[in-house]
Design a protein around this nucleic acid. Sequence first.
DNA 1: ATAAATATGTCAATATAGCTGACGTAGTCG
DNA 2: CGACTACGTCAGCTATATTGACATATTTAT
Lengths: 193, 193
Amino acid sequence: MGKGTGVSEALKGDPAQRAAAALWPAERVGARDAQARPDDAIDLVELFFFAYRDFVGDADRLLENYGFGRAHHRVLHFVHRRPGLTIAALLDILRITKQSLNRVLKQLLDGGFVEARPGAADRRQRLLFPTAKGAKLAGELSALQSERFLRVLGELRPGARAAATEFLLAMIDPQERERVRAHLAKRPQEAAR
Amino acid sequence: MGKGTGVSEALKGDPAQRAAAALWPAERVGARDAQARPDDAIDLVELFFFAYRDFVGDADRLLENYGFGRAHHRVLHFVHRRPGLTIAALLDILRITKQSLNRVLKQLLDGGFVEARPGAADRRQRLLFPTAKGAKLAGELSALQSERFLRVLGELRPGARAAATEFLLAMIDPQERERVRAHLAKRPQEAAR
DNA sequence: ATAAATATGTCAATATAGCTGACGTAGTCG
DNA sequence: CGACTACGTCAGCTATATTGACATATTTAT
């Protein structure tokens, strides 16, 4: 015991992993499938770390050209995804303080990537909208990151999309899933990009 | 067009998502399965963001008790996972500068969580090892994060582990996969914890 | 043996992204 | 009117990262 078998099993004859298929020693093949074991989980922890690192790297490189960082990306992304978002709603999604948000948001406003309009019902609110320029950048960033997923879904066998979605949703704190669901259900009216 | 269907499909009758199962409007059910489309990818981008946020949150809360941050966690993790790691190898994994590493590593050394021994073959090298104290903390952190994966794997249908592994590995830059593979193949001799 | 390359440490300055706390202003609502 | 709310802002702090320059010990190649 102590030697895991799950990961090697996951790599058996799959298209994208042909090169990596012969990696784990043969003795590790032959796992119980249904029963998850600690070593497998540790591999997943590390895979998740590396996958996220590469995932954000794509956007980071594009953002550099604008002098923006990940914080700008996140703000722009959610404003683009849900135009008319209030400051409070954005803070709730990002889980940062208004002081932190403001520094970044101001740069996006000054740079003409986002604009704020007073709320019709409640004029204290500032409703955030992407400008054409902002929507373009958001679209490019989104396309970059989508490309990675589309490549992955193309590489893996049919059903991978459903599996990935289930997996990622299950990774989210149970009490958060409802909010994430609500967020995903809301799509911008205009067909972005 | 413009309305995705993939995510809703992913949620059909699965154990963990019972509560979230009825989320996406019914009109969106009935997707082509094999063909990935942009909207699905955007959902995945956001799910990945939220999942990672919650994933690192677990460890963050424990690390606070020690006055450590994520940087310390990453260093401790990889030293624990691959005892005898050199500085150069660690820098290569973490992709940070030695100046950044040093600040964090020094705190771990001073706190008695990690110790450095000169390399036997090359005495310029400092081989990093977790102390008993460091191994204990690393184990607790690892257990916390593994728990999330084990919960997820338990919630999802059999085969989810293989699917998740394939998915995460495919998310990694192709030219990086070989290195990740090599890393995963190396397990510490001692049965940690 | 000496020179070059390597592994690591360190000093200094800077940037980004977050935080807490306090205070201000405008608008809403009872 | 007064309380509450949405948001902005000033000030100071922390964590994590960067670049650039220089120092030291050790190995390796000529």
